[in-house]
Simulated assay, not measured.
Amino acid sequence: MKAYPVPSPFHVALIMDGNGRWAKKRFLPRLLGHRAGVKALERTVRAAWNLGVTHLSVYAFSTENWKRPEMEIKGLMSLFRFSLRRKVDEIRRENVRLRFAGKRDNLPADVVELMDWAERETGMNTGLTLVACLNYGGRQEIIDGVNALIAKGGNQPVTEEDLDGMMYLPDLPPPDLIIRTSGEQRLSNFWLWQCVYSELYFTDVLWPDFGSGDLEKAIAQFTCRERRYGTVK
């Protein structure tokens, strides 16, 4: 696998879209598409570290996903439980640190307990940081940050740095590259505060079919772009 001149830290964010369409094309239940998506994530995590990625964040379940059919939501929560119980030991051995971003107060209590356990078990790892955005919404994150600043009191004008410090994971570097699969070309409420200078990459590949070659292609294109951050070069 070719190495690319990427920044350090290098944060790649993934909108893992297309599980349902992948399953529909194969006349399978949607949940089997989500299971295939978990396997795609395992492949991608391994490939990411080899390509120089230091932080990988994935849009696992959005605040809008609660609008999906109840059966699908229950199936997704069961899949989260199963994946965490089965994979945390392996993640720890591979030196991956697992973190979560999103609201926890309306997730099932046992799912939250597993999230807390997974963060504790992998918290000392120093390799790739994997962030699962679970029950996450960019607008909700900003609202929560503003409310946290209000609760702190004070009458000084709010700065960007103040609000940065109130985000769910304030120490997480902003995404350098956001990849969305399945041909859709929108952010869908993902990392809205953090994405101001993120490069965007869209691919028609459905998420369960995404592999190391697709990630390498996205990173190769990223390295060819000129990032000026509002300045002239």
Score class of each variant (00 low, 15 high):
83 S>K: 12
163 L>N: 06
5 P>I: 11
3 A>K: 15
61 F>A: 05
162 D>R: 12
167 M>Y: 10
117 W>Y: 07
47 A>R: 06
41 L>V: 14
105 D>F: 14
158 V>I: 15
182 S>Y: 08
195 C>Y: 00
185 Q>W: 02
30 R>H: 10
113 E>K: 15
158 V>Q: 02
12 V>Q: 01
142 I>M: 13
137 G>E: 03
140 Q>L: 09
129 T>A: 07
166 M>Y: 04
98 L>D: 00
230 G>R: 14
111 V>N: 01
78 S>R: 15
173 P>C: 04
150 I>R: 11
48 A>E: 02
54 T>W: 04
152 K>L: 12
219 I>W: 05
134 L>S: 09
42 E>C: 02
8 S>F: 10
190 F>D: 01
94 E>F: 11
173 P>N: 03
170 P>A: 08
94 E>M: 14
22 W>I: 13
102 G>W: 07
9 P>F: 06
164 D>S: 13
187 L>N: 01
132 A>T: 14
137 G>N: 06
227 R>A: 00
37 G>Y: 04
156 Q>Y: 09
225 R>D: 00
196 V>Y: 01
163 L>S: 07
176 D>M: 11
60 A>L: 14
26 R>S: 04
168 Y>W: 12
204 D>S: 15
222 F>E: 01
198 S>W: 05
35 R>I: 11
86 R>A: 07
106 N>C: 08
228 R>H: 06
76 L>D: 02
171 D>C: 03
3 A>Y: 10
53 V>M: 04
179 I>G: 03
226 E>H: 10
179 I>F: 07
220 A>W: 10
15 I>M: 07
34 H>W: 03
225 R>E: 00
89 D>R: 15
185 Q>V: 10
212 S>D: 09
87 K>E: 13
42 E>K: 14
206 L>A: 05
148 A>Q: 13
152 K>F: 01
19 N>D: 06
31 L>T: 12
139 R>S: 04
6 V>L: 06
15 I>N: 03
127 G>I: 13
145 G>D: 05
120 R>I: 07
164 D>T: 14
209 D>C: 07
190 F>L: 06
163 L>Y: 10
170 P>E: 06
99 R>G: 00
207 W>D: 00
213 G>T: 14
157 P>F: 13
133 C>F: 05
159 T>K: 12
102 G>P: 02
